[in-house]
């Protein structure tokens, strides 16, 4: 049984990612006050910032940056399924038949 341990962490990088996540949280709050440009813009801005935060957590804290291609395939299936669900309802919304 292989019991060896590999250290992947970098204390400085972990702290930097944490500070970036806090900064992006502040940006989310600030952006909500400047999003009078329309509903879609407000939603898009919120989702873009959330996606950046999620990517930082995924790549650095969950270790995706050094992960095998298999994990990206698994993750990709989930992201694609959610995008299909989100985009699939848009035509119905667009034509106002909700």
């Amino acid at each position: 049984m292989n019991m060896e341990t590999t250290t992947h962490s970098d204390d400085g990088l972990d702290l930097g990612v944490y500070l970036a996540l806090l900064g992006l949280t502040a940006a989310t709050l600030a952006a909500s006050h400047f999003s009078h440009g329309g509903r879609i813009m407000a939603v898009a801005l919120a989702l873009i910032i959330a996606s950046v935060k999620a990517s930082l957590i995924g790549f650095y804290y969950m270790g995706l940056r050094r992960e095998r291609a298999m994990m990206f395939i698994i993750l990709g299936i989930g992201v694609a399924a959610v995008l299909i669900l989100l985009v699939g309802i848009l035509p119905d919304m667009t034509f106002g038949r909700f």
Binding site: I74, L75, V82, L85, L86, I89
Partner: peptide, 25 residues
């Protein structure tokens, strides 16, 4: 990661439903 995939689908389905409802209402 397969378990997390199932969680992504769970939360993703709820969120897509939520976004769709509020976009159309």
């Amino acid at each position: 990661w397969l378990f997390i995939l199932s969680e992504i689908l769970l939360f993703g389905a709820f969120l897509a439903s939520y976004v769709g409802t509020r976009l159309g209402n």
